Amino acid sequence: MANHITFIGAGNMASAIIGGLIDSGFSPSSITATSPDDAMLAPVRERLGIHTDTDNNAAVSQADVVVLAVKPQIMRQVCEAMRDSVQRQKPLIISIAAGLDADTIDGWLGGGNALVRCMPNTPSLVGYGASGLFANTRVSTEQRDIATELMEAVGIVEWVDDEALLDAVTAVSGSAPAYFFLMFEAMEEAGVKMGLPAATARRLAIQTALGAATMAKQSDKDPATLKQNVMSPGGTTEQAIAHLEDANLRGTMEAAMQACAKRAQEMAKELSGTP
C-alpha cells in the first residue's frame, strides 16, 4: 500500500474509504483529508484520527496517492489550483468523480499523470461497494495494485481495459442500488395492498433480497439456475416469474440501463466542455 494517501474532499464516500482503509490495517497517521472548511474536517479528524488540512497544495506535497473526491462540477477549479503541486510530486491520481474522463482530469492537472478512474457506488458507505476501475497507460502494476487495495477496503473491484466501459459499470452497479430500492418500494406497496403492515412487507422484502444476493455470491451456479431451483412446476414462483417475463422485465431493465449509460456519456461531455 502507499506510504501516504491524501483525499481531496472529505464527504461521505471519502470518509467511507478512509474508514475501510483503517479497518483493514492502514495507519490513520498516513492519511490526510482536505476541505476548504475546517468545520467539515473536524468530525472526520476526531472520529478517524487522520490528518486534515484546508490547503490542498500542502496536502498533495506529502502524498504518493491523491484521491479526488470532490463534486464533478468543481473538479476543474480544484485540479487547476493544485496543478503545480501535482506536477512536482507526481502522485498516483485516483478520481472517484462521475462523468469526467481520465484525459480531461489529467489535462487539468497539467498532463503526464498516472491516473485511475473509479466508479464506486453508495453501498461502499456500508462496506458492500462494487467499484469499476480504469487505469491510463502511465499507471504502473504497483500503482494498479494500490488502487485495487484502496477500493477493496469498501467492497469488490472490477477493472475494465476500455474507459468507455465505465458507462456500462455505471449502469450495472453505479446507479443500480436505486433499481433495487425501487423494487423494495414496489414490493412493499404490493404487500400492503395484500393486507400486510408496511413495516412487515419492507423487512421481508429487504431480508429476502439480502438472502438472495448472499446465495448468488456464495454459489457456483449462475442466476438462471438459482432462479430455476426456486421454481416448482405449476407452483407460485413459476406463476410470478411467468408474469414478470410476459411484462418484459428483461427488456425494461435493458432499456433503463441503456438510458443510464447514455446519460453518463452526455454528462461527460457537459462536464468536460466537449461539444
Rank of each mutant, 00 (worst) to 15 (best):
A2T: 01
T6R: 01
M13V: 00
A14C: 13
I17N: 08
I18P: 01
G19F: 13
G25D: 03
F26P: 02
S27G: 09
S29Y: 03
A33D: 08
D37S: 15
L41F: 12
A42Q: 15
A42R: 15
D55S: 12
A59Y: 15
Q62N: 08
A63K: 01
V65F: 04
Q73W: 10
I74E: 06
R76K: 15
V78G: 09
R88I: 07
Q89C: 07
S95F: 00
A97Y: 00
L100Q: 00
I105L: 13
W108K: 09
G111L: 13
G112K: 02
G112Q: 08
G112M: 08
L115E: 14
P120H: 04
P120Y: 06
T122V: 10
P123V: 07
L125Q: 07
L125K: 04
V126T: 13
Y128L: 13
S131A: 10
S131K: 09
R138Q: 09
E142K: 09
R144Y: 03
T148C: 07
T148N: 15
E152P: 05
W159T: 08
E163Y: 09
G174V: 01
A178H: 03
A178Q: 00
Y179N: 01
F184S: 02
E185N: 05
A186L: 13
A190K: 05
V192I: 14
G195L: 04
L196G: 02
L196Y: 13
A201M: 11
Q207K: 06
T214N: 05
S219H: 12
D222S: 00
A224R: 07
L226K: 02
M231Q: 07
E238G: 04
A240W: 10
I241Q: 11
I241W: 04
A247Y: 10
N248F: 12
A256K: 06
A256L: 06
A256G: 12
A259W: 07
K262F: 14
R263W: 01
E270W: 08
E270Y: 07
